[in-house]
Amino acid sequence: MKQILTVQNLGISFSQYMKGLRRRSLKVISNLDIELHEGEILAIVGASGSGKSLLAGAILGILPENAALEGEIYYEGQLLSQKDKEKIRGKEIALIPQSVNYLDPLQKVGRQIGISIQKNGGFRTGGSDESRDKTIEHDLPKDKVIENILQKYGLDKAVADYYPFQLSGGMARKVLLATALTSGAKVIIADEPTPGLDEPSLNEVLKDFRGLADDGCSILMITHDIEAALKIADKVAVFYAGTTLEVANTRDFDGGDSSSGDGLLRHPYSKALNNARPNVGFLPSEGSQPFPDNLPKGCPFSDRCVMRTEECEKELPAFREIRGGKVRCIHAT
């Protein structure tokens, strides 16, 4: 399948003022790599502070001004500059933000969904294929499109006249989803799309993501919720302290020896993460993710790793391909 979005060696550092006028640069992301293919859902999992949300900011070019970017981001084979990002965001790549706070509190929901439509002058439903979604057509007036998309998510058309503060958590989630769908983008970045959803709504959202991907849309799902991610994702990227440690196929998480939970995973951290899942091993692991200004010299996980050798502390292991996945560990087999 065609690669649509590639992030290579992404590094993000923030300059911050220390005591007095001394300035220092804090590198919070050092070696992030991901590849997103057409029609694929790539889940990105990792603890808070592992750099998940910053990745979304970097792709869309919306990082704060004191952030410096390294590495390359390619979209459809083309290296993206900040200008390119500004041009394609919202049109080719859409963001589903974390919470209702990302909606303008003084603008009606319908209008906010409408912004995406207006800007593209028409309506695409992802990819280059003919309108796949029968409820959404090119030439419909904007109101009708908004009504259709709300209806698709089981929301009354009156919701278009609501203000964001009147939405329940689940409704807000769906409205945020709708803003991305009406944009007709080929890539959707969903930043923590599941928290606060009840079971039926959660399943509905996950089903929608899967449906979108099956229609050719590519989805980058940034999440804490491994269980939800494993239900729909094709691949899972595991982030740790600003580095991609492993990109695994979803089935690697539950294959192999089910009693140990190690499955077919490659990196010791991914294994530990998998073992911590409630219905696998429910085993906590010692220690915690190091802070960006206090990283071990070699592998960022080396200070907690059970397989650590002296080699691990020398330099960051290269990203290499093993059994159809990628891993950054010299001991992985």
């Binding site: 965001r89 963001l95 706070n101 990302y102 303008d104 912004i115």
Partner: peptide, 13 residues
């Protein structure tokens, strides 16, 4: 500095 302006930027406004 609010999230909704950030989101507006992300939407290409």
């Amino acid at each position: 500095r609010t999230d909704y302006v950030l989101f507006a930027k992300a939407r290409g406004e």
